[in-house]
Every structure is written in structure tokens, then in C-alpha cells.
């Protein structure tokens, strides 16, 4: 009897491990339009309304927990913020002109206007599910191909770039975040106003941090320098996924001009990845 149980246990284990390995292998090797992905998307489409309903039902509970968390954090930050307000007031008096341009909303509006983002059709969406691990930076939203969303469309918040659409179904879409270390989510970016071009990549295990590695250009960075997406086009059809000029983040630490910039520079993204509830997908676009 005991031996039979042991044999059964081992058989179940081996069977399921083999099943997992086969699923991983097929999932990685087949195209996005392959049968396994189609089944995954089909099941997803069925389960999505349930997840969406649960997400909406549990939003008050989430907000309550986050409210406590933010209240506790706010108390700790109070003194720092007071000091910062005093510093900013002094700075404001000295540089009125620069301060006028400092409002991020104005910057975003200006960048959208000057870089042709007005040509994109914005689709507002609600986040219905978040990934369960820091290894996977992805979210699911409640809008999909029925709303005109397509794979590789850029996703932004009012603060800046969030990521791109990695998978889309009829009434849902998955967003690969900038912090996702498992997919090709590197962003070509440049320092706004200075021009050195590089790639922004995530730092796995350090949520909320990105790295900027130079491809070309000079190497002086000041703390607070803003990064925006840099669009490029090679040989006609090949072009970068993200449109030009979307704010990405700011430089954490100054790097003097005389220092040879080989190592990645730490970036803090503008978008708050811990609190993503509403996002906007830039659909369509020029051409």
C-alpha cells in the first residue's frame, strides 16, 4: 500500500514537471500567434472579466491599505518636505523663468506638441492586475484590440512613460513595464536638451530604479537631468518602438564631464510603478 502511494506520488511529480518543462519550452519557442499563446489568450479572455470584477470590488480595500501606508510614510517625510519647500521657495525667487518651465505637466504638454504625439489617439485604461514578482514587471489593463490598441503601442501616465503593449486580446492588454527584466523593453533615450543618446534598462530586484547606458555623445550628467525617449529610423521601415519625446525619468547622481562615462547611470522613473491604477495607451500615430 505504502509503495503504491510512493509510486503514485513520484508519477504525479514527474508528470507535472515534464508538463511544466514542455509548456515553458513551447511558450518560449513558438510565435505570439502560436496555438499555445492562442489558448492562453482565450482562457485569459474568459478569466479577465472575473479578475476585473475582483479588482474593482477590492479597490476600496487596496486604497485603505495604501492610505495607511502613505500616511505613515508622509509623517516620516514631513520634515524633509518642509526643508525642500523652503529650498524650492528660495530657488523660485532666483529663477522665475526656469520655474515657469519646471511644471511637469507643462513639459509633457510641450513635448507632446513638439514631438508629434498629438497625432496619437490616447486610450485611457484601468489597471486590472499587477504582476506578482519583481522579476516580471507587467500589468493588465481593461482595454484591448476592440479599443484600437495594438502590440508595441506606448503606454504612459501623466508623469511619463510606463512601458509598451506586449500582448493584446479583445477586451484586455498586457503592458510590459520599463521595470520588466524579462522582455526586450529597453528604451532608447536621450538627456532632454543635451542630446547624449543611450538605452534605459531595468534593474531587477531594485523596484523603481532604471539604468541609462550611453550609446553615443558626451558624458556630463547633472542630478535631475531629464531623460526623454529618442526615436530613430534605420533603412526605411525599421524604427524604434517608442515615439520621440516622452519623459522617462531623471538622473539620480551627477557625473562630471571629465569622468569617462562607461558605467550605467542610475535613473529614477517619473512614473510611479508602485501605484499604477490609470494609464493611457498611445494608439495609432503618424503613418
Amino acid at each position: 500500500m505504502y509503495r503504491k502511494q510512493v509510486r503514485r506520488r513520484r508519477a504525479v511529480l514527474v508528470l507535472l514537471v515534464v508538463a511544466c518543462l514542455m509548456l515553458i519550452s513551447i511558450s518560449i519557442s513558438e510565435a505570439d500567434s502560436g496555438p499555445l499563446h492562442r489558448v492562453q489568450n482565450g482562457v485569459s479572455a474568459v478569466l479577465n472579466p472575473i479578475g476585473e470584477g475582483a479588482s474593482r470590488a477590492l479597490k476600496p480595500a487596496r486604497d485603505l491599505v495604501n492610505w495607511f501606508d502613505e500616511t505613515l510614510a508622509a509623517r516620516g517625510e514631513n520634515d524633509d518636505l518642509r526643508q525642500q519647500v523652503a529650498d524650492l521657495r528660495a530657488e523660485l525667487t532666483e529663477t522665475q523663468d526656469a520655474a515657469e518651465k519646471a511644471g511637469y505637466a507643462d513639459d509633457l504638454k510641450k513635448l507632446m506638441g513638439s514631438s508629434g504625439l498629438d497625432a496619437y489617439e490616447p486610450v485611457d485604461a484601468t489597471v486590472t492586475a499587477h504582476s506578482t514578482s519583481t522579476w516580471y514587471g507587467s500589468i493588465r489593463i481593461d482595454k484591448g484590440s476592440d479599443d484600437g490598441i495594438a502590440v508595441n503601442d506606448s503606454v504612459v501616465t501623466s508623469q511619463g512613460l510606463v512601458g509598451r503593449i506586449s500582448n493584446v486580446g479583445g477586451g484586455f492588454a498586457d503592458v510590459g513595464l520599463l521595470t520588466d527584466g524579462t522582455s526586450a523593453n529597453a528604451v532608447t533615450a536621450r538627456i532632454s536638451g543635451k542630446g547624449p543618446v543611450g538605452t534605459v534598462t531595468p534593474v531587477v530586484g531594485a523596484p523603481g530604479k532604471l539604468e541609462f547606458t550611453l550609446i553615443e555623445g558626451g558624458g556630463e550628467f547633472d542630478e535631475g537631468d531629464e531623460l526623454v525617449t529618442a526615436s530613430f529610423q534605420i533603412q526605411g521601415d525599421r524604427r524604434s518602438i517608442y515615439p520621440e519625446g516622452i519623459p522617462v525619468g531623471e538622473v539620480d547622481q551627477a557625473v562630471p564631464a571629465e569622468q569617462d562615462v562607461q558605467d550605467p547611470v542610475r535613473i529614477t522613473p517619473f512614473a510611479n510603478f508602485d501605484d499604477l491604477n490609470e494609464v493611457t495607451v498611445l494608439t495609432g500615430g503618424p503613418g
Binding site: I24, S27, R140, D174
Partner: peptide, 25 residues
Amino acid sequence: GTVSGFAAGILIDVMVGGTLGVSSL
């Protein structure tokens, strides 16, 4: 435990959009 882990992993990968089988293992 094994069967529950397998089922939960598949569900997670389907609902959140990960590589099928990784969470299960």
C-alpha cells in the same frame, strides 16, 4: 501540494501573462 502548485502556477501565468510553466515549477 504538487497538483495545487501546478494549477496555481498555470492560473497565475494565464491571468497575469507570464511564460507558461515557470510559476508552476
